[in-house]
Amino acid sequence: MEIDPFIFRLSIFILSIFVGYYVVWSVTPSLHTPLMSVTNAISSVIIVGAIIAALAGSSQNIFETSNIFGFLAILLAAVNIFGGFLVTQRMLQMYKKKKK
């Protein structure tokens, strides 16, 4: 019997939880705020789904209800992507070592 592709995705998911577990424990506590803003930015990769939703269907009528939800999701995710990465960058620039 063939293995359902869902099982493979589930495996990736579970392994990623473990990777996340070990990687996040190694994050220094002083960078926990940038950690939150960057995880927020990368979770906006949900924009992938938003783009597919927005472009779905015939190219004549791109403003069906489902497309509109896609476009709105793109808008929200884009705010997050740019806002998240840039504010993280801004914070990380401030972390400096002692000048000797």
Partner: peptide, 10 residues
């Protein structure tokens, strides 16, 4: 998305 979701979730 699956990898990211798992990372962010944990």
């Amino acid at each position: 998305l699956i990898i990211t979701g798992a990372l962010v979730g944990s």
